[in-house]
């Protein structure tokens, strides 16, 4: 269970992007967060995945307050989150082949020996053929790369998935396939999901509950600095 309480965050203390936002993801629940572009959804998603330290507010993971972000967060807390970003090109190290990309979290956490089996299993799950696994990011399409990024997010079996506009760069069939992969994973593990996006129809069909940015952010008009 993930609880965000009165989170204020941004890149400059004087003009926070996210002001006083509260949001809860119950265990196993899929929450869709809708909002216009530039409102701060992605920043909130990064805060939720412990990738950006908020200026104020509390984040509770399974009831325990989180005090450290990024590298300072204990490894088992950090890896409880699987993150998928909007742009696969920017979220894949251009030097790593797709199989290394997927195996990287296992290697980083000292579970190198599990890598070959787990990569093969996940590649089949997300629909990547073995010849694609030997290629580098510039040799595959956006959709294929996003499949690899989703596989990387699932490789450590996270308890919570944070998908920040995961499907907005993809065509409809790839988007549907990736959503299906996420749903299969959630059914088998009971993981929670925070899906951020601006596609109302998709999020409504995908998630148990959708919330609109205006309903969780403190009233005060749109942020002047987007």
């Amino acid at each position: 269970m993930l609880e965000l309480r009165a989170i204020t965050a941004g890149y400059d203390r004087r003009t926070p992007v996210v002001r006083d936002v509260s949001l809860t993801v119950e265990p196993g629940e899929a929450v869709g967060l809708l909002g216009p572009s530039g409102c701060g959804k992605s920043t909130l998603a990064r805060v939720a995945a412990l990738l950006h330290r908020p200026d104020s507010g509390t984040l509770l993971l399974d009831g325990a307050p989180v005090r450290h972000w990024r590298h300072r967060a204990p490894r088992e807390v950090r890896t409880a989150f699987g993150v998928v970003f909007q742009q696969p090109r920017l979220s894949a190290d251009p030097r790593l082949r797709l199989d290394d990309l997927i195996a990287e979290p296992l290697r980083a956490t000292g579970r190198r020996e599990e890598a070959p089996d787990r990569v093969a299993e996940l590649a089949a799950t997300v629909g990547l053929t073995p010849d694609l696994l030997g290629r580098r990011p510039h040799e595959v399409s956006d959709g294929q790369l996003q499949r690899a990024c989703l596989a990387r997010a699932l490789v450590l079996r996270p308890r919570l998935l944070v998908c920040d506009e995961m499907t907005s760069m993809l065509d409809a069939s790839t988007a549907a396939a990736l959503v299906a992969v996420v749903e299969d994973y959630r059914r088998s593990t009971g993981a929670g999901l925070l899906a951020v996006g601006h596609d109302r129809t998709l999020l409504r069909r995908w998630c148990d509950r959708t919330v609109h940015w205006d309903d969780i952010a403190r009233a005060g008009g749109p942020n002047p600095r987007v």
């Binding site: 190290d93 251009p94 030097r95 990287e104 450590l156």
Partner: peptide, 25 residues
């Protein structure tokens, strides 16, 4: 870059992020 975020979320230490992702770049 988001790929560094992804590495952090994947449990990579500061050292590993630097040696594996930043220095080669």
């Amino acid at each position: 870059r988001p790929y560094i975020d992804a590495a952090v979320s994947g449990g990579a230490s500061r050292w590993r992020v630097t040696v594996r992702h930043l220095l080669p770049a």
